[in-house]
Write a protein that binds this DNA or RNA. Structure first.
Lengths: 177, 177
DNA sequence: CAGCGCCAGCTAACACAATTAGCTTTGAGT
DNA sequence: ACTCAAAGCTAATTGTGTTAGCTGGCGCTG
């Protein structure tokens, strides 16, 4: 049922995700949803956790057997592809605070983080800089993907090309450390 | 009145910005707001336009008289500072599509863009790469600032330090072109 | 100065989303 | 066959956005 909510969010956008619409899509009356979910907030946290887990899996799978520039490019592309394919569920992840360390939300985020950390292993990043580099990669990927999925890049140049350029930029910067 | 809406959004968060609360803060009944604004959507677009204009001014002012690394650092810091100081109104800017080329939203975005373009003038970026570099800078700044304002950086390392590191990274990458 | 019309407020009312309470059905396990 | 819990339903409440239609004040014009 959280899965149905995630699919609906992808279809109609996160703000369009409504209890009534979800119930309708499930062929059920609205109050029945509360037998499965505590409320809208709970649903959103569930969707966010699902998105994080799926995205983490996709990125983790993409870098399997790769290292260095290959791994970075694969991870970035997989991340962007996921956000573009599932804009609604990804949007649910921003602004969610895990309730505790074993919250599915926290473990999903942690796995994603570990994946990017392993990408950095392919570069000579000093230990003290790893956290900063991680945040940089996250800001880049998150910023690009969310701007693109919100139609934030309106002017001319080709967006795919920009993304490849961006991967290249990050790779050169990391190799130069 | 749009200004009051923006201030309220900063106080209570964008989702907390409600017609009723805004009316209350203005000492007026809710329906009276519709004499000044067409509705919630219109209000949000107004807030977004205001935020874009203010942010553009702040960044433009920050780089005055600077060039190269100085300009880049000043622009990035001003941008981040604005988003942190005004999280609500900045959040209103994402996902807004300008209705036309003379929409205040579009001109605000354009001015911001030009400012960053002038920052790039301080580097030897080939003409063909300027758009890509612009998108990279926007993704970096937007991604970092939004993640930070949504409390997306939970783990240890110091966030200010990460941001300075990120400026440095971008500077080195741009100088190496 | 009287009258006119507009601006900005108000009340009443409606639509729709989230949520809760309490009843009913159904199906699995004893 | 009996029990009970899961999952559905209807009815009702609250909160938010929005529209319709009325009203009081204030500047203008005759």
């Amino acid at each position: 049922m959280v899965a149905a909510g995630a699919a609906l969010a992808d279809d109609v956008g996160l703000p369009g995700l409504t209890m009534g619409l979800l119930a309708q899509r499930l062929g059920v009356r609205t109050p029945s949803l509360y037998k499965h979910v505590e409320g809208m907030d709970d649903l959103l946290r569930g969707v966010a956790a699902l998105a994080l887990a799926e995205a983490g899996d996709a990125v983790g799978l993409a870098i399997r057997g790769r290292a260095g520039r290959d791994a970075l490019a694969a991870a970035a592309r997989a991340f962007r592809a996921f956000v573009l394919a599932h804009p609604g569920r990804y949007a649910a992840t921003v602004g969610q605070e895990p309730t505790g360390p074993d919250d599915p939300l926290a473990v999903g985020a942690g796995r994603m983080l570990d994946t990017f950390r392993s990408v950095l292993h392919g570069y000579d990043v000093p230990e003290a800089d790893v956290d900063h580099a991680l945040r940089m990669l996250r800001s880049l990927c998150h910023g690009f993907a969310t701007l693109e999925s919100a139609d934030g890049f309106r002017w001319s140049a080709d967006v795919d090309e920009s993304f490849e350029w961006l991967i290249d930029f990050a790779d050169r910067g990391l190799r130069a450390m």
